[in-house]
Amino acid sequence: TTYKLIANGKTLKGETTTEAVDAETAERVFKEYAKKNGVDGEWTYDDATKTFTVTE
């Protein structure tokens, strides 16, 4: 399944996707990606669109 991340960070803005077996796995991947890019904010997830959003 393809999951999408929308990053609304102070230093990183944009979108990326990952293939994962479930939302929990995708969330781990995206949180690691955000951490590597210095983004720390509020996370939301929309199951209907398989989209995570992080906003600083």
Rank of each mutant, 00 (worst) to 15 (best):
A34F: 05
A20N: 03
Y33V: 06
Y33H: 04
D22C: 05
K36N: 12
N8P: 05
Y3P: 02
T55N: 09
D46L: 03
D40I: 14
Y33P: 00
L12C: 14
A26C: 01
V54W: 03
I6D: 03
D46E: 06
A7T: 15
L12K: 07
T49Y: 04
N37E: 06
K31G: 03
Y45E: 00
I6E: 04
T2F: 09
W43A: 00
K36Y: 08
G14Q: 13
A48H: 10
V54C: 05
K4C: 07
T1G: 09
K10N: 11
N8A: 09
L5Y: 03
R28T: 08
V21T: 12
T25H: 13
F52K: 00
A34I: 07
D46Y: 04
V29M: 10
E19Y: 15
K31D: 02
D40Q: 13
N8V: 14
T16E: 05
V39H: 05
L5C: 08
T16K: 08
G14T: 14
K4Q: 05
T49W: 03
A34P: 00
D22H: 04
W43M: 04
Y3L: 01
K31F: 05
G9P: 04
T16H: 14
V54K: 01
N8Y: 15
E56D: 09
K10D: 08
R28N: 07
W43S: 00
K13S: 11
T49H: 05
A7Y: 15
D46A: 04
T44D: 08
N37R: 10
T11S: 13
E42A: 10
D40P: 03
G14K: 12
K13E: 08
W43R: 00
T44K: 08
K13G: 06
F30N: 00
E15A: 09
K4R: 12
E19Q: 14
K35S: 10
T17D: 05
E42M: 13
G14L: 15
R28H: 08
T55Y: 09
T51N: 02
E15L: 13
T55C: 07
D46C: 09
A23T: 08
D46N: 10
T2S: 07
E24H: 10
E15Q: 11
A20P: 02
K36D: 09
G38I: 04
A20D: 02
T16A: 10
K31E: 03
V21Y: 13
G41D: 01
E15F: 12
K10L: 14
K4N: 05
T53F: 10
I6L: 07
T44L: 08
K4H: 14
D46W: 03
A48K: 12
T1F: 13
V21R: 12
A34C: 14
F52W: 06
T53I: 09
E24Q: 13
T11L: 11
E42G: 05
E32N: 08
T2C: 13
V54D: 01
A26Y: 00
T51F: 02
T49N: 07
R28F: 08
T2I: 14
E32D: 12
D22W: 03
E24D: 10
V29T: 11
K13C: 15
L5D: 02
T53A: 05
N8C: 14
A20H: 03
D46T: 05
A48Q: 11
A34Y: 04
T1W: 11
F30A: 00
A20Q: 08
G9F: 11
N37I: 14
G41T: 02
R28D: 04
A23S: 09
T11F: 14
T53E: 05
G38T: 03
T51Q: 04
T18D: 02
F30L: 05
T51G: 01
E27K: 11
F30V: 01
T16W: 15
Y3D: 02
T16Q: 09
D40M: 11
T16F: 15
G41C: 02
E42C: 12
K4D: 02
E24R: 11
L12E: 05
T44Y: 09
Y3Q: 02
V54E: 00
T55V: 09
G41L: 03
W43L: 03
T17L: 07
G41M: 03
E32R: 06
T51P: 00
V39W: 15
R28P: 01
K4Y: 15
A48R: 11
T49L: 08
F52N: 00
T1R: 10
A23N: 06
T1M: 11
E27I: 07
E24P: 09
G14R: 13
I6N: 05
A48C: 08
A34D: 01
T25Y: 07
T1K: 12
V39A: 04
T55F: 08
A26G: 01
G9T: 15
N8K: 12
T18S: 04
K50P: 00
K31H: 08
G9K: 04
A34E: 01
L12I: 10
E56K: 05
D47L: 06
L5F: 09
